[in-house]
């Protein structure tokens, strides 16, 4: 039985009067890949932002290894080192080259030696096939390459939990694959991850468990095979239907 890494209890989140997450409870076990799907505006990105304490919450608790992340605001930088987050828009630092983007946080946050950080950065870059781009600037890279660098940048902090917020949503179709392959590779290594995505085929392949979110509530939570082939709720069925098309012209 794997240990529970993250536990969310009765999370309540609203912007002014607009309620985004309603009494949401969820857990993630160590080594588990949780995929969150749902229509746009359902609160999936907000959920990730809450887990990383980028958003204040109005109620409930988020526990990482049993410790409330909002227990002490001073502890946030420390806590965020344990949680890696990759954003839809990559957010590499444009004034630094690829290597410096990756080793900045290890050096200034974790006080690691520059040489040691560089070495690990090179190893990680090689793993995502970008070892020869270390001295380039973000503007010289394609979207897919930038996103792979962003993943490396959070991996080098050795986080216990990785959050992926629609990391392929801003990419051209042919670049989606190269990023998803990196995520699949991470799943194989047994990393704990929460992935928000619109790529249903990928979700099915990578997930240990799928959570379907609608209007700030968990509508359905099941194993990927069960969710994608036999969704329990009408709402999930309708959502999944939007990803499939009827054949228009029958041949013969």
């Amino acid at each position: 039985m794997a240990a529970e890494l993250l536990k969310i209890e009765h999370l309540q989140k609203s912007y002014d009067s607009h309620v985004v997450l309603k009494n949401l409870s969820l857990f993630v076990d160590e080594g588990e890949v949780l995929v969150v799907v749902g229509p746009s505006g359902c609160g999936k990105s907000t959920l990730l932002r809450c887990i990383n304490a980028l958003e204040p919450v109005q109620g409930g608790r988020i526990l990482l290894r049993g410790r409330d992340i909002h227990e002490n605001e001073k502890n946030l930088p420390k806590l965020r080192q344990q949680i890696g987050m990759v954003f839809q828009s990559y957010e590499l630092f444009p004034h630094k080259n690829i290597m410096d983007n990756i080793i900045l946080a290890p050096i200034i946050v974790q006080k690691r030696k520059r040489e040691e950080a560089r070495q690990e950065a090179m190893e990680l870059l090689a793993r995502v096939g970008l070892e020869n781009r270390a001295n380039d600037f973000p503007r010289q890279l394609s979207g897919g390459q930038k996103q792979r660098v962003a993943i490396v940048r959070s991996l080098i902090m050795h986080p216990e939990l990785l959050l992926f917020d629609e990391v392929t949503a801003a990419l051209d179709p042919e670049m989606v694959r190269e990023v998803l392959d990196v995520l699949l590779d991470l799943a194989r290594q047994g990393r704990t991850m929460i992935i928000v995505t619109h790529e249903m085929q990928f979700a099915r392949a990578v997930a240990d468990r799928v959570v379907f979110l609608d209007k700030g509530k968990i509508v359905e939570e099941s194993a990927p095979e069960a969710f994608f082939s036999r969704p329990q709720t009408e709402r999930a069925r309708r959502f999944l239907d939007t990803f499939s098309f009827e054949t228009v012209r029958k041949s013969g």
């Binding site: 980028l54 965020r80 890696g84 954003f87 630092f93 004034h95 946080a105 200034i108 959070s154 902090m157």
Partner: peptide, 26 residues
């Protein structure tokens, strides 16, 4: 963009570190 600050915060940087290494240089 605010996301620059957020992604730096997500890497565990403190407010002064974000200002000094991310916001001010840009």
């Amino acid at each position: 963009p605010a996301q620059q600050t957020e992604s730096a915060a997500a890497l565990g940087m403190t407010r002064p570190q974000i200002l000094r290494h991310i916001v001010l240089p840009q």
